[in-house]
């Protein structure tokens, strides 16, 4: 009885079963590097979401890499110090990455305009809370992904990059080669459970750690 009711409801236009909602359709999410996919409850950056990145510029660039490779356009607002060479090395298509280094007092207007046309918009400055919510709503409406750097009220997901054990450098010789980055995610809805991933950058090789094992200290030297 209940089965047939579900079936008849699901046949209606615009109604879908709850278990279908959990697995977001692929077309709705922008791709990310393999190592990061496990962190995001939708397997990628869901269009319309607000994903806060904190603690690591490399993490921000790594988030943009796969999507720009697939033809999406990205913009970074308010980061005059962004290292584009590092972006290129992480796999970001630099010619599809626009920079607005100094938005000044037009921060909200600029971000809103960018959300209209670009798939990914990273913002390194935080506007007043009311404006921030309005921008999140705009991203949801336009199907873009808003990536605030630092903090943001009412974000769907927060990614925290920390750790950073480097290999390759010794006393007086060698060079920086690889680093480990532990990324923890925390969010609302499907992401409330949280998860964490240990990445080796560059390269994005991920060693997935189940969240249940809390011995994070062992990972970070």
């Amino acid at each position: 009885m209940s089965g047939s009711a579900t079936a008849s409801l699901a046949a209606l236009n615009g109604v879908s079963a709850a278990n279908e909602l959990v697995q977001a359709p692929l077309g709705k999410a922008l791709p990310v590097l393999d190592g990061l996919a496990g962190l995001l409850p939708w397997g990628g950056l869901r269009r319309g979401s607000t994903v806060v990145v904190r603690g690591s510029t490399t993490l921000l660039l790594a988030l943009l890499a796969a999507a720009t490779n697939e033809g999406s356009w990205a913009a970074v607002v308010g980061m005059p110090d962004l290292g584009l060479l590092a972006a290129h090395e992480l796999g970001v298509v630099v010619h599809r990455l626009a920079l607005v280094p100094r938005p000044g007092s037009e921060l909200v207007a600029v971000t809103a305009a960018l959300l209209d046309g670009l798939d990914l918009v990273a913002v390194a400055k935080q506007p007043p809370a009311a404006e921030a919510r309005r921008l999140s709503a705009r991203a949801r409406n336009r199907g873009s992904v808003l990536i605030p750097v630092g903090g943001w009220p009412g974000a769907d997901l927060e990614l925290d990059g920390s750790g950073g054990g480097w290999t390759g450098l010794s006393n007086g010789h060698g060079r920086l080669r690889e680093r480990e980055l532990v990324v923890r995610s925390r969010g609302r809805g499907a992401a409330a459970r949280g998860s964490q991933v240990r990445l080796t950058l560059p390269g994005g090789r991920a060693i997935d750690l189940p969240t249940d094992k809390p011995r994070l200290r062992q990972v970070v030297p």
């Binding site: 913009a75 626009a98 920079l99 607005v100 600029v110 305009a113 046309g117």
Partner: peptide
């Protein structure tokens, strides 16, 4: 969108590397 931002900030406001 980028041209629109240039209207707000001036032509040098939006750059690509």
């Amino acid at each position: 969108a980028l041209v629109r931002v240039q209207g707000l900030l001036g032509p040098d406001g939006v750059v690509t590397g």
